[in-house]
């Protein structure tokens, strides 16, 4: 699994299900600075839709990329402000 994005921090939410990947992502983003990129590693297949929905509906974040691997879903979220 590789990405062109240089992530500042990695959040491991493997084994956790809804709503934890979203709630933890939000908490992790709050700790970062503008311009930082958070890598979220999840096993919840629902996180593909949920992270996208959360990023779309939330100010100050931008979903850069989502990578679907073997039961691993990796999301790259940038803090924009």
């Amino acid at each position: 699994m590789s990405s062109e994005y240089q992530s500042t921090e990695t959040l491991d939410v493997k084994g956790q299900s809804c709503p934890m990947p979203i709630v933890k992502t939000k908490q992790a983003i709050d700790e970062l600075e503008a311009g930082d990129v958070l890598e979220v590693v999840a096993t919840d297949s629902g996180s593909m839709s949920d992270i996208r929905g959360w990023a779309d509906g939330t100010d100050g974040v931008e979903l850069l990329e989502q990578v679907e691997g073997d039961d691993i879903y990796t999301h790259y979220v940038k803090k924009t402000e």
């Binding site: 809804c18 709503p19 979203i22 709630v23 992502t25 939000k26 959360w54 509906g57 939330t58 100010d59």
Partner: peptide, 11 residues
Amino acid sequence: LILASTAAAFG
């Protein structure tokens, strides 16, 4: 509780 905590994550 799930909806409330998720909505809070949306701000």
